[in-house]
Design a protein around this nucleic acid. Structure first.
Length: 455
RNA sequence: GCGGUUGUAGCUCAGUUGGUUAGAGUACCGGAUUGUGGUUCCGUGGGUCGUCGGUUCGAAUCCGACCUGCCGCCCCA
């Protein structure tokens, strides 16, 4: 016998967990529908060539690769030590599990460009896989809920994503702060203070400011080859927290006066904030110039969302990408999107006790099984309830009443219906409220009515 | 990928310097109670002590490797 187990970082979901997860997906899907977004799905596995090189060096390492079928060692030289692991893997694996939903989406757009109407608003809620080391809130298989608007440069789309985010988290009752930045601002900073090709090093270091503090960030910048002079020049960046969005924009405009790109980033940010204000979106939107995010395909706005009432990593993130489809041969297709992390949202809802009670009791009534003719009589009542759209079941065996009651109790079924010889003779059913213990003799129509009103 | 830490019944955990047949609570199942659950009482079952190897007369206990969960780094939903 094998000991039952599942791979590291993966999980089973119990009925209670699934009902909660479905509540999350349903809630998000409703908001997406309201914003006229259309659903798509893509396969769990993509060609490795689609995936490799899109997420940086780190991303390549975290990709799950799928061993070729058949004689996969044929023609592969394992002795050749000049081959890197990556090159060897490329010979052995031509497929991999998707790492996120955005790159497969870009592939999808290019492949189906002639069937789609642009601007295209899509949503997609599917699992993704990363060979990361699991920790709390970090899994190797997890779900993302993505929404993207592609084929339009309009900053109205950024504003709409803020609006969608606001609606999603308001529906959950989660208080959030939404941080926003613009990659062009980061490029401008690199342009002015160090050099444009150091923007990645700059971002990686700057991104850690709230975590490791100013001094450690400066130390990391030095280590990454950014000069002391440049770091001193950037000093005002470290002093922006606490300022209003307007004040931050003004300061950035000063600092970036010599960079066209940088100023454009500031202008974009200002426009988005302006839209958001005019649309009267209540979400707390905060400029954070240290927000960089690792994904190197972002070119404009960058978003990140954190729950304010619980200590947890970001529950959502996204941004604008101008050229993601370019690598698949389609130019001039700018898009902006955001991704909500289902398991992070689950943990937040759980920790703050925000899951609604009603999602846990999908079964409204259970008929006790007395066997024989009583069983048939119960089945008739059961059908009436189901026809009326009331989720109900009958205990399948003629077991002891205590056992059947226990079953209903353990499953949290709010109503138990009993009908034996006496009830059958009178054409009624005994309805028992499991919470109060109260019992009533009613005809089936009255029971249906009572339960409909109860909902 | 690097460093640290954890693992005993379905669950929460005891288990003495290494010493007979590894315990408790809870849950489960059965009974007290054959048309009434949540409270109570009694009883049954349930363990390759994470896995493999080593030290030892003897290992849940000491050592090593691996696996898993967790924490930090990297990165990130």
């Amino acid at each position: 016998m094998v000991k039952p187990s599942i791979p590291k970082g993966t999980r089973d979901f119990t009925p209670v967990e699934m009902m909660r997860r479905n509540y999350i997906f349903d809630t998000i899907r409703n908001v997406f529908h309201k914003h006229a977004c259309l659903p798509i799905e893509t396969p769990a596995m993509e060609n490795l060539s689609t995936l490799m090189g899109k997420y940086g060096e780190e991303g390549d390492r975290l990709l799950f690769k799928i061993l070729n079928s058949g004689d996969f060692t044929k023609g592969v030289d394992f002795q050749d030590e000049t081959q890197s692991t990556n090159k060897l893997a490329a010979q052995l694996c031509e497929k991999g599990l998707r790492y996120d939903l955005t790159v497969p989406f870009a592939r999808f757009i290019v492949q189906h460009q002639n069937e789609l109407t642009f601007p295209f608003k899509r949503y997609q809620m599917q699992p993704v896989w990363r060979a990361d080391r699991p920790q709390k809130g970090r899994y190797r298989e997890f779900y993302q809920c993505d929404v993207d608007i592609i084929g339009s440069n309009s900053l109205l789309n950024e504003a709409e994503l803020v609006e969608i985010t606001d609606e999603v988290f308001r529906a959950f009752g989660i208080n959030i702060v939404m941080k926003i930045n613009n990659r062009k601002i980061l490029s401008g900073i690199a342009e002015i203070f160090c050099s444009p090709d150091q923007v990645t090093d700059l971002c990686v270091a700057l991104d850690k400011l709230d975590k490791i503090g100013r001094e450690a960030v400066c130390a990391e910048m030095l280590e990454r080859g950014i000069s002391q002079d440049a770091i001193c020049g950037m000093a005002p960046l470290f002093e922006l927290s606490g300022l209003s969005n307007e004040e931050v924009l003004a300061k950035l405009e000063q600092m970036l006066a010599a960079s066209e790109t940088g100023l454009q980033g500031v202008a974009e940010l200002r426009t988005v904030l302006d839209y958001v204000a005019k649309m009267q979106i209540a979400t707390n939107l905060e400029i954070d110039v240290t927000l960089a995010r690792g994904l190197n395909y972002y070119t404009g706005a960058i978003f990140e969302i954190k729950a304010t009432d619980v200590a947890m990593g970001s529950i959502s993130g996204g941004g604008r990408y101008d050229n993601l489809t370019g690598i698949f041969g389609l130019k001039n297709m700018s898009g902006v999107g955001i991704s909500y992390g289902a398991e992070r949202i689950y943990d937040v809802l759980n920790e703050l006790n925000l899951f609604p009670q009603h999602i846990l009791t999908p079964i409204t009534a259970m008929f006790v099984n007395f066997g024989g003719d009583d069983e048939i009589y119960a089945l008739q009542g059961l059908k009436a309830l189901r026809d009326a759209g009331i989720p109900a079941e009958i205990y399948p065996d003629k077991a002891k009443i205590g056992k059947q009651m226990n079953y209903a109790n353990a499953k949290g079924i709010p109503y138990v219906i009993m009908a034996g010889e006496n009830e059958r003779a009178q054409g009624v059913y005994t309805l028992k409220n499991m919470q109060t213990g109260e019992q009533k003799s009613l005809v089936i129509g009255e029971i249906v009515e009572a339960m409909k009103n109860d909902e």
